[in-house]
Design a protein around this nucleic acid. Structure first.
Length: 1044
RNA sequence: GCUGAAGUGGUGGAAUUGGUAGACACGUUGGACUUAAAAUCCAAUGGCCUGUAAGGCCGUGCGGGUUCAAGUCCCGCCUUCAGUACCA
């Protein structure tokens, strides 16, 4: 009996947390309503992709911060919307489906369940009744709906907004397109009203596609052969795919695109109106890449063609001594002379075959060829040779440049390399070594009508003159490209599209959602169609249409093919924040009432990695929806904060491995995935061979024939690589070929070395747990590596630097702090933390680690600090005899501690400085414990202050103090400054700026009296040692400084 | 190369307008309690010097400067991290 009584008085966080989590769920404590007398506040987290690995401690960091903010706002009397959901379409589930046949919906559902359990155990105050999942047909119905709206819109530059395509059609049929000022395809042809009305329906549709905000066009796309799909620019990192790290090549394909470029200027201007991190805004500015200059047209001699270039330096036009076109430029084949044709063809072919990564890896090499053609300088009429070179990018500007070697380093290098003229057009500048690119300090010379002018004046004049002769105009160019919107994948939103005579048609919105059909296989069809081509039945509630196989049949039983691509990952995340406002509405994307009530997100917290993806696309969709009158703001989030990454500590073992006949065994590594292979390459110590491998892999993917040729060139006979089932063998051959150090041939069970053994050092990342287990015992380490962890080292012999066998202590270990990832064995799961210390400890510790925005290493050991704080807090309320809180009158010190805490915590929350709040709580608990405070008047409001951070313990103690409703809406205590007023100050007394001692003096003492008191003090006299003070500075309430 | 952020004890980090540098924790050391461990509590903890104490000297990446006073402001460098990269 006694035991049980004592037991109740202890802080049993597991029971307490489970109890309150259930209470919140049962009572729908955090359900937000769409109208209220209270002011509204919308706090949003970036919703997670539910991966199979579950959450690690880095994931909840931002969620905890936003939860604290949401809970704080509730205490301050706001009606808070704090929803959560899942970005549940995506590649990993599909890759898993390809490997296992498991339907992605099943994997996704299971993963969501795990995520939900993990999130629930941390005690977030989400309104789960508003959960959205991007893969739910009731949700993606509206993603499809927005797609239709975009298709039915064009961008009118006269009003600077998106408008209905039906209006455009009216204008075309009454006035043609010559006076229409719209954002459209560069190559759109000009026509009159009469032309338009005589065009065939297909021709009209083709033209309209050039205006629509989402359109189908043949564009040069980033094709990832390994993933079998196209990728958007933001899905490529360092020239390889973001997911999986596969090579990417350029390819022309017919794809859906989003005309985000129409919004380039507004996306740029809008940044001024939102409170987002500067670094993130800067990323978006760079991505949009606005540059002001001129477009200039050069006539090609003895032909009808004109080469159009974009330049930011029209003032240097007289220095143009050649032109350079991108190898992909459409004029290349048209203007090349017969004599140069062979050389040009060889060059263009070679460039198109290079992957992005190759091109990037090899920036320094200057290459190019002369086309044989000449352009005519618009002013001097002198002939200018036209070259092609891969330093000119097809995707930027017009894909052609006027090359001014004296003013641009790349042009300079190119000219030097090929011996082209470098005329100097700058006054008093030496260009014998390098180009002079400083536009702000240049005076133009040798340039006819702009001689003696500076950059600004000359630019203006040149543009004027170009306009006079009709060969150019001022122009603003953006780097931002239209975003490719289709993917050749299964697990994504189907398009609401079918084709009539090859022209895309929207399926009527009343048939939405177009549900994702079932397929047998998640791979492309044998004819190379996307996975949806495998579908035999498309089920949707069609009134007039029936679906026959992959085709749509209308009343008259004509059959039309359906769009088989799916939408990219960012489609579903581009407006989810609005859908949360009215998530179950089946009639509208959201009701007018809901959007007018919630308006926009007040606080959005998430990772900076979405800077040029999700966050840019979402702003684009929001602006479009604003134009259509659907939303009241053209920016969706007022304030945004990027939480920093939590880094894990990896354990590295350094071993030296002998590669011998009994050594490196990689037999059963089947490698369809470059990601896996890269890992082995890197951990195998072949860092230097990484690139070679990639070339090889690219070659293989590009063309097996070409690969074969390459291998033969490298003197590796077909016999050597043909029997091998995977790329690793090829790699081995490549290594052999490159460094001649060793050769490894698959021989059923092991590799054989034909030449000398080679030694390589390896850093193997191991599970920290295991590292502790094996510590310095060599036998254990070696058996751990060979048997437990790394099968490929099964037969390895460990050597030290000198090549001797390692007997006991030569395997070194090291710790490294890096991004948490499964493959690095440095992941810490929140589950174990919650189990051992509780959710409140986890929440507090994550905040305590450091500033929210900053990257910081995780160290589980440190959690004892906040955990013992919570125990100490508990003890303020309970001792062995039970609840000790009473109605005692609070002391002055008690009140001072409480109000100091209220003030500091409130300021901290406003500044998102959550780490310092935790310190403040610790100080408060330490002080109140020392003061032996038992006063309810202090301890009750203290709980509300702590509640956003540690809601479970706060709820429990709150109820123990006699409340029978949740603490979550209790009013935040009002700070009363009068409790902090001091009557005296412990003045620091410094001598020549160095603090020596302190003196306690009344705060109302005058400057003169302070000076007298300080100078009279014995310690002052000791410091001065008889010297006369030269100057005494007294800052009342702050400091005294004596200069001697 | 360009852009942005940051460099403070053994570690994470504090110091809101220039005014006691190192709050709060972790770790370490010593002690109490305990058969023992865990848990808990107490004390010390930037470096160096003086036997201790009192005290002193040096200390916020480096070099200068402004100021009575600089982690904080100014100038010049170095390093690290992140983003971006032939953008005409």
């Amino acid at each position: 009996m006694t035991f049980r009584f004592r037991d109740i008085m202890k802080y049993h966080f597991n029971d307490i947390e489970a109890k309150w989590q259930k209470y919140w769920a049962d009572n729908k404590t955090f359900k937000a309503v769409n109208n209220s007398n209270k002011p509204k506040y919308y706090v949003l987290d970036m919703f997670p992709y539910p991966s199979g690995a579950g959450l690690h401690v880095g994931h909840p960091l931002g969620y905890i911060a936003s939860d604290i903010y949401a809970r704080y706002k509730r205490h301050k009397g706001f009606n808070v919307l704090h929803p959560q959901g899942f970005d549940s379409f995506g590649l990993p589930a599909e890759q898993y489906a390809i490997q296992t046949g498991q339907h992605p919906a099943i994997t996704t559902e299971a993963n969501i369940k795990t995520y939900r359990r993990q999130l629930d155990q941390i005690g977030f105050s989400y309104d789960w009744s508003r959960e959205v999942r991007t893969s739910d047909p009731n949700y993606y119905k509206w993603t499809q709906w927005i797609f239709i709206q975009l298709f039915e819109s064009w961008y009118n530059l006269e009003n600077d907004k998106a408008e209905a395509i039906s209006d455009l059609i009216k204008r075309f049929s009454s006035e043609g397109n010559t006076n229409v000022n719209a954002i459209c395809d560069d190559n759109v042809e000009m026509f009159s009203a009469e032309n338009w009305n005589n065009f065939s329906s297909e021709k009209q549709q083709q033209i309209l596609l050039q205006y629509r905000l989402t359109y189908l066009a043949e564009t040069e796309v980033n094709w990832c052969p390994a993933l079998g799909t196209v990728l958007a620019n933001d899905e490529i990192v360092n020239g390889v795919s973001e997911r999986g790290g596969h090579p990417v090549i350029r390819k022309k394909m017919t794809q859906w695109s989003m005309r985000i470029s129409a919004y380039a200027e507004r996306l740029l201007q809008g940044l001024e109106t939102i409170d987002w991190p500067d670094s993130l805004k800067e990323s978006q500015r760079n991505w949009i890449g606005k540059s002001v200059g001129a477009q200039v047209e050069f006539r090609v001699q003895s032909s009808e063609f004109r080469v159009s270039v974009f330049t930011t330096r029209p003032d240097t036009i007289f220095g143009a001594s050649f032109m350079t076109l991108a190898p992909e430029h459409e004029l290349v084949s048209k203007i090349t002379t017969p004599e140069q044709k062979q050389e040009v063809d060889a060059y263009t072919e070679a460039t198109t075959k290079r992957s992005e990564r190759d091109r990037m890896a090899d920036v320094k090499t200057i290459s190019g060829v002369f086309t044989g053609a000449y352009a005519e300088h618009p002013f001097t009429k002198k002939p200018i040779p036209i070259w092609i070179g891969d330093y000119v990018l097809a995707g930027y500007g017009t894909g052609a440049v006027m090359s001014v070697p004296c003013g641009d380093q790349r042009d300079y290098d190119f000219a030097k390399h090929f011996g082209i003229d470098i005329p100097n057009i700058f006054e008093g500048v030496d260009i014998s070594e390098e180009a002079f690119a400083d536009k702000d300090n240049s005076i133009i010379a040798n340039s006819d009508f702009i001689n003696g002018m500076n950059y600004k004046k000359a630019t203006k004049r040149v543009i004027y003159e170009l306009e006079q002769i009709g060969q150019g105009e001022g122009k603003i160019n953006y780097r931002l490209r239209d975003a490719v919107f289709s993917r050749q994948r299964y697990w994504g939103e189907p398009f609401p599209v079918y084709y009539v005579n090859g022209m895309p048609q929207m399926i009527d919105a009343k048939h939405l959602p177009i549900k994702l059909p079932e397929v047998e296989k998640y791979l492309p069809t044998e004819t190379g169609e996307p996975p949806l081509g495998n579908a035999t039945v498309w089920a949707w509630d069609a009134k007039k249409c029936a679906v026959v196989s992959n085709k749509l049949a209308d009343d008259a039983n004509e059959i039309y093919p359906l769009e088989l691509n799916t939408m990219p990952g960012w489609a579903g995340s581009s407006q989810y924040f609005n859908r949360y406002m009215d998530p179950h509405n089946s009639e509208e994307i959201f009701s007018k009432e809901a959007i007018n009530y919630w308006q926009q997100v007040d606080l959005y917290i998430g990772g900076s990695e979405h800077a040029t993806g999700h966050l840019l696309y979402s702003r684009f969709w929001q602006k479009f929806m604003f134009d259509k009158g659907l939303v009241p703001h053209d920016e969706f989030a007022k304030k945004l904060i990027n939480q920093g990454m939590i880094l894990g500590t990896s354990a590295l073992l350094f071993v030296f491995r002998e590669m011998s006949s009994k050594g490196y065994d990689v037999k059963d590594t089947d490698l369809p995935d470059a990601d896996d292979l890269n890992k082995i390459i890197v951990s195998g110590g072949f860092y230097d061979k990484y690139l070679e491998y990639n070339n090889l892999y690219d070659r293989y993917l590009n063309s097996k024939e070409e690969f074969k040729k390459f291998m033969i060139e490298k003197d590796i006979s077909e016999e050597d690589w043909k029997p091998h089932k995977n790329f690793l063998d090829l790699l081995q051959n490549e290594i052999y070929n490159v460094n001649k150090k060793g050769r490894f041939i698959f021989d059923d069970d092991s590799f054989q070395t034909l030449e000398e053994n080679i030694f390589k050092s390896n850093d193997l990342r191991v599970d920290l747990k295991h590292l502790d287990e094996i510590t310095s015992d060599f036998v254990k380490i070696s058996s751990f590596i060979k048997d437990t962890k790394y099968k490929e080292f099964k037969n390895a012999i460990f050597l030290n630097d000198e090549g001797q066998k390692v007997e006991d202590d030569l395997i070194k270990s090291k710790r490294e702090v890096e991004k948490m990832s499964k493959s690095k064995y440095n992941v810490v799961s929140p589950d174990a933390i919650c189990e051992q210390y509780g959710a409140d400890s986890l929440r507090m510790y994550e905040m305590f680690l450091g500033p929210l925005e900053q990257a910081k290493p995780w160290n589980t050991a440190g959690i004892t600090g906040v955990h013992s704080f919570l125990k100490k807090l508990w003890k303020l309320y309970f001792d062995d005899n039970g609840l000790k809180v009473n109605d005692a009158e609070p002391s002055k010190d008690n009140l001072k501690t409480l109000h100091k805490t209220i003030k500091k915590v409130e300021d901290d929350i406003k500044n998102f400085s959550f780490n310092t709040s935790v310190s403040t709580f610790m100080i408060a608990a330490n002080e109140l414990t020392a003061q032996k405070c038992t006063s309810k008047e202090i301890l009750e409001p203290l709980l509300i202050v702590i509640s956003p951070y540690a809601p479970h313990i706060a709820e429990e103690l709150w109820s123990k103090l006699g409340h029978n409703t949740s603490i979550s809406t209790a009013s935040f205590p009002i700070f009363d400054a009068s409790h902090l007023v001091e009557s005296s100050k412990n003045y620091p007394i410094s001598f020549n700026g160095k603090m020596r001692f302190t003196i306690e003096l009344p705060l109302d003492m005058s400057k003169e009296d302070i000076e007298k008191a300080v100078l009279a003090h014995e310690k002052t006299q000791a410091q001065l040692q008889g010297r006369e003070p030269k100057k005494v500075i007294v800052v009342p309430g702050k400091i005294v400084n004596i200069v001697s």
